[in-house]
Write a protein that binds this DNA or RNA. Sequence first.
DNA 1: TCAGGCATGTAACTCGTTACATGATTGC
DNA 2: GCAATCATGTAACGAGTTACATGCCTGA
Lengths: 186, 186
Amino acid sequence: MSLRYALLGLLAEEPASGYDLTRKFERALQRYAWHAQHSQIYPELNRLAADGLAMVVAEGARGRRTYAITDKGRTELRSWMLNPPDVFVVRHEFVLRLFLLSTLDPDDARAVLRPVVEDSARELATLRESIDTADTTTPPGALPAFGRLVAEYGLRSFQTMHDWALWALDQIDQADTTAPEINHSE
Amino acid sequence: MSLRYALLGLLAEEPASGYDLTRKFERALQRYAWHAQHSQIYPELNRLAADGLAMVVAEGARGRRTYAITDKGRTELRSWMLNPPDVFVVRHEFVLRLFLLSTLDPDDARAVLRPVVEDSARELATLRESIDTADTTTPPGALPAFGRLVAEYGLRSFQTMHDWALWALDQIDQADTTAPEINHSE
DNA sequence: TCAGGCATGTAACTCGTTACATGATTGC
DNA sequence: GCAATCATGTAACGAGTTACATGCCTGA
């Protein structure tokens, strides 16, 4: 049911069409939080409308339909936000690979980790730049957009991953040079 | 296909039954990396065996079947580990809620964030304790188990989340006391 | 005019969840 | 004997992916 609330949440920020929402997923949500394609989004929008949680507020060129959240939708969304489950659904292929690093020999493990260092550094730089731009263009004293909170979370997460990957490479090197002959049994 | 590799990876560490694997998911993978129930694990084990990537190596009481990874399975797993996709699948309901914090008013946002501070502190303490125990029981000079790498990643991730949530609460307070009258329009 | 992007949809398939179902073993 | 746990399975359903399908607008 998370897709339903992801859509309601995006609609709560501003009205949007299925096409808009698809692009929002690609740009922001997909990398950190949730993934969905247009083939899933359009039917769900129709269901949201059928359930009275969203409604079509404009029809434009090329069959474009702009949806907005309804009061009922807002109530439903708020209730979902304030009642988190005890255990969250997590599916993270990257972290899965970290878990399975133990199945590789040191050289292979290093080969997996090195791109992690570079990728996280690149993500970090991109995010920091867009945060700096946003911070300087925001009038002083204004409410910081909540998007700023998420960006900060992303920034810290990439920093953590970067630092960790460097540390992990170091750990592997140490183990490898200290006692390389213990390996290669079996 | 990630489930397939998660299972292969766990079998690469040691032979296990479907029942064992189900518990491993519950204990470790589920919270951080991937989730699966027994109803998905048993059929997939049968498929792994049919494809020659795993095989039954022992049959025990109560119909228990212990599977082990085959050489073909190891080759397949290694190839998967060394060829990561450009973009990872991420489904993280917790982070989704962070994104949608912007749809809540400051009081509601605080109500969402406060438990995050507490939960992450608790997870942090538990993880640190089990890491300390593992570190002191590991004979000095031995190869650090790769599980130690993941534990460290978990530790740092929870620390990051904890620090971020405190920072976010502070940001909300500041915005709320600086310019509370800007809100409540519309 | 025509390429590229806007815009929506659906069918077939696979993945994942929930619920139902069954029985064996162990320890008290 | 019986409760708890071990142990595996499947059917029905819902969620998510891939591929196919269609047509409209805008700008060069």
